[in-house]
Nucleic acid binder design. Structure first.
Length: 437
DNA sequence: AATGGACCTGGGTCA
DNA sequence: AGCAACAGGTCCATA
């Protein structure tokens, strides 16, 4: 279990507001923490008017960064409510959570009656998988993979969550052939429509929408395919009702929970018997909720980075179950028992919204693909010329689907050129961000 | 065993 | 301003 260091937070982060300078004792795990050290961000105006209820998770930045963990596609239950601040639901609790300079602060702003306050800390620690030390793993992975070592400093604290199995399964049942913003809405409608509402306990600072627990299987059993279609689920409506029925026949939530104890391949095989669940969705559910830390959900992004860095022979091949297994094996061979965690950091670095954060890697490729052969000649001129071409000063705004579409059309030539640029850029020194992002 | 198409919907791109 | 292609896949029907 991670433990917070005893050192006070930086003076510059201390809030000067009188209401926050009272000596509340903020419990952190079994240890009280002097709240005089509660930083500005926690007590800032506009949200909190006092320090009551806030706790520290005890996670330095290399262990947990919210921006790399909550909105990056593991869970669709969090809403960004401010700069590095989120509100979401963990089980029966509504949680407000904020990134601090070198820790994370949280408090419960709503809960079901049966959710005991005494268990709050344990629930948070479990959800954030705090028994697994990410920083140690990162050191190991960085030693065994140059590419990982290069991109990781830009994506610190990308931690795997340990979510509820039922909730995770249905979230990712919605994810097929879909995009994140829409999945978020679908999950939200599922919860608000059929989940139990969680009463707010601190309504003084919160004026947002109501929060709901994820519906239980019994609650979901009352939902028809027509209901779901009306709620915008499209063809996935049938997957949801079908999986609900089958799960209930198998033993419901309790059956799903037993998969945590068994081997990952058994869990994946079991999940794949559910309608709408294929290798990718099963791997997501298992990695994000069933303690299957070695599993790697192979989607188009992961396949792309895998062929680029580990399995060049697979370039251009279709993402079949057999290929999925090959990529999975390659990740385990390289990253070991927590390959799924390593994959998570690599995956984030491939996302469009984060592309370009690492100088000379994914951004270079993106721009190269967008410009095609025009750039290829520059590549031959060496890293310096290449850096000019790809706009290392950030002036080039070429991102998104355009590049992807062109990649498909350009086919092999662009791919070859892209790896060439990457090779060149790997030789160029990069300057990772320092302590601050 | 592998490949190709269909499938709902909507936010972001491009002409 | 509209539109088409696409999105963090899965299922089913074919050779």
């Amino acid at each position: 279990m991670l433990r917070s260091t005893a050192r006070p937070l930086l003076n510059s982060t201390i809030n000067a507001r009188p209401s926050c300078r009272e000596y509340h004792l903020i419990k952190h795990g079994s240890r009280p923490v002097r709240p005089g050290s509660l930083p500005n961000r926690v007590c800032s105006a506009g949200m909190a008017t006092d320090c009551a209820g806030w706790h520290l998770l005890g996670t330095p930045r290399e262990e947990l960064r919210l921006e790399h963990t909550l909105p990056t596609g593991q869970s669709f239950r969090w809403r960004e409510t401010g700069d590095d601040e989120y509100i979401g639901v963990i089980g029966q609790r509504v949680v407000q959570i904020r990134q601090l300079e070198d820790d994370v602060a949280w408090r419960i702003i709503g809960r079901a009656p049966q959710a005991a306050e005494a268990e709050d800390t344990a629930v948070l620690a479990d959800y954030f998988n705090l028994s697994t030390p990410l920083a140690d793993l990162v050191r190991t992975w960085s030693a065994s993979c140059d590419h990982f070592a290069r991109i990781q400093p830009y994506f610190q604290g990308a931690r795997m969550l340990r979510q509820d199995p039922t909730e995770t399964l249905f979230q990712f049942l919605c994810s097929s052939n879909n995009h994140i913003s829409r999945i978020h809405g679908m999950v939200e409608r599922l919860c608000s429509g059929w989940g139990t509402r969680l009463p707010l306990t601190r309504s003084d600072e919160y004026g947002g929408p109501a929060h709901h627990a994820f519906p239980t299987l019994d609650q979901l059993a009352a939902v028809s395919e027509a209901d779901l279609r009306a709620a915008g689920f499209g063809y996935r409506a049938r997957f949801v009702t079908g999986s609900v029925a089958r799960l209930r026949a198998l033993g419901g939530e309790a059956w799903l929970a037993t998969l945590r104890a068994g081997p990952p391949d058994v869990a994946v095989a079991a999940l794949c018997t559910l309608p709408g669940v294929g290798p990718k969705v099963a791997a997501c559910a298992a990695l994000f909720s069933l303690d299957a830390h070695a599993l790697v959900p192979v989607d188009v992004h992961v396949l792309a980075l895998a062929t680029r860095h580990y399995l060049p022979a697979l370039r251009g091949k279709a993402l079949t179950p057999a290929l999925h297994a090959q990529v999975q094996a390659a990740f385990v061979a390289r990253f070991g028992a927590h390959a799924g965690w390593a994959h998570n950091t690599l995956f984030i670095s491939e996302l469009a919204r984060y592309r370009g954060r690492v100088p000379g890697t994914t951004r270079a490729e993106e721009v190269l693909l967008a410009r095609g052969s025009e750039v290829a000649e520059e590549v031959d001129a060496g890293p310096d010329a290449c850096a000019r071409v790809v706009g290392m000063d950030g002036s080039d705004a070429s991102t998104g689907k355009g590049g992807r579409a062109r990649r498909k059309r350009k086919g092999g030539a662009a791919s070859v050129a892209s790896s060439l640029v990457e090779e060149q850029m790997e030789l160029a020194p990069t300057t990772p961000p320092q302590a601050a992002a």
